[in-house]
Design a protein around this nucleic acid. Structure first.
Lengths: 193, 193, 193, 193
DNA sequence: GACTAACCGAGACGGTACGTCCCGTCTTAAG
DNA sequence: CTTAAGACGGGACGTACCGTCTCGGTTAGTC
């Protein structure tokens, strides 16, 4: 019952990969400034038109180049204990953010400030999926009675990711294990009413 | 005894102002994308060389264009009560961040991700001075016994500005009075050990 | 006994026509600049490969698009009088050259200057067949004693078509009835030796 | 009394020359197909913007590249005898048209068919100045009684340049001394009324 | 009063990237 | 074996900025 018949020559399957890889390595090497459609096409050995055929904008390509990094998907822990879940998630996240991936994320955030459409996409997919992960951990904790019901979960999520992005973007302090514990204290230390 | 006398024609005093104003209004109107040295010079009726003579880079000009906005200096409250001080500061800050200034700040953060040197300047002047303000409020609260000594002040500062920047950059939630109270709860609600 | 049976799908008979028609109308509308293999294929609803399968080059297609315009075949007059024959031929020719066909011919001449192979084809078929027509009129006139034997017929043909192409390409003067009479004068007015 | 003050940095004087030379040699080597703004800029070691700053279009550059070839200016003979004047002019012209310049002229004519604005410029400067030269020779001959008054000079000019362009563009016959004499016969052989 | 250093606006300069168009070739599923 | 569709690498289009430079001209302080 395959209604959608593919017409015309199908896109070469390896090309996406080659382009994304070229984009990724350019970012890795020179940061946001090293990224340009021209440079990516040149490096991937592809025509510029091929890039624009497959992505609406450079920002979209940038986004996919990052999203494809499989290491990026962090499994959601479920130990049955708020503190343990959060510690595990944060440690895994920070591990990733101390690699070259940090440069990519900063580039994405910069691009999001320049291109409104891209910001929407970035927010709706990347940001929201990560917020949802933390939210489910917090909700489970509330259900188990570990977290007072009256505590606003959304502001906690904002605080957690706020600290992370703030440190990632400003680079005034590291995202290390000490930081994990500080964030945990912030969350877990919420006084009963 | 000032031996070094300035030789040659002095810089026209009004030119700085005209250029900064042009830069400011371009950012205000079109955001980061509307800003370019060409456009600023054109609008200010100045030569490009004049811009490069007075600022090392576009990023530096961008920074000054913002810093000059006098409204940007928020007076540090000192009511003798943590909650009141923080509420007052946050409300004043959010008021500013709900004007066209928000666009400027996003542009600065984007530029900081592109230009390393600019990030350092942005952090050392803009970011750190604001952190210092909040830090003094928190320290005073600790001295008055309002805040437990064991609570890490730095992570609280990170949380406060983290939430603000995160909401400013992602635009998933507003910076309103409700947000002020949520942040206050986060800070004030720290459980005694 | 036709042993060689054609294998595979036969070419759709209407496709040639649709493509040539598309090419013709594109030239008619936008001149040489509007003509491209992409545009013709798009307009004809045909694949580009079909165009390249049926014509070796865009120039060849261009040529056929014009050649097919049946109105283009001008019947050779034979009144038994040089002046009448030539007048009739020129008037018929000019009538055609004052329609949108003029744009086509200019395009062909432009293409001939860009593509050597096409120039050869254009010359051997289009140009030479028209020269042959005028030559037969002149030869008949010589045989009837209307034109001195010593007059070089080839240079007369060059002069006739030279004037026409020159006016067609430069557009400094019209191809009208006055021009017909001027050319006639040039040819008929050849002094006896 | 120099009212026109030049503002801004003056154009480098040698650049025009370098660009025109690059354009000329590209045409000489590969014909019209070898000419492109990119290629000219690359070869001249100039930025594309410089080309567009100095010429409105590629066609204009093309035109200047040719016009600058000083060999292109053929001195107008004045022997006091129509036949001698015309023979001298045609021989000089044909000498030029049997060099690589022929390729350039074909390119210009092709470009004129593609770009209407360029055709106007080409006609108004190049074509008309050459027509004026021949016209003055013919008028002088009329004044001396060498050419009947009733003979239309304009159609003679059309015939002369018509034959030349026709042979240049179609390449069915050479522009040699025999051709010179044939054209002379055509013009001089005009029967008295 | 002449000199000179630094300023000023304008704008040329080589360069890089933009996003679009077309080239001629190729590869698919369908007929 | 043809068809329409359309992907593909390549390359040119004309525009916008980059940061540097070079003009004619101005405005001060120094000699």
């Amino acid at each position: 019952m395959n209604l959608k018949t593919s017409r015309g020559r199908p896109r070469l399957p390896g090309t996406d990969s080659a382009i994304l890889s070229a984009a990724y390595h350019l970012l890795e090497e020179d940061g946001y400034g090293g990224f340009s459609m021209e440079a990516v096409a040149r490096r991937a050995g592809a025509g510029k038109a091929t890039l624009y055929r497959r992505w609406n904008s450079g920002a979209d390509l940038l986004f996919d180049a990052l999203a494809r990094q499989t290491a990026f998907i962090i499994p959601l822990p479920n130990t049955g204990k708020l503190e343990l879940d959060l510690r595990q998630l944060l440690r895994a996240s920070f591990k990733l953010l101390n690699t070259r991936t940090a440069k990519l994320l900063r580039s994405l955030m910069a691009e999001a400030q320049i291109d409104e459409g891209f910001k929407a996409r970035f927010r709706d997919t990347f940001v929201f999926s990560r917020r949802a992960g933390v939210r489910s951990i917090l909700e489970a904790a509330v259900n188990r009675g570990e977290l007072p019901t009256h505590v606003d979960r959304e502001i906690l999520i904002d605080a957690i990711y706020g600290v992370i992005w703030y440190r990632l973007l400003i680079e005034h302090a590291p995202l290390d294990n000490k930081c994990v514990e500080q964030i945990l204290q912030l969350v877990v230390n919420q006084r009963q009413r």
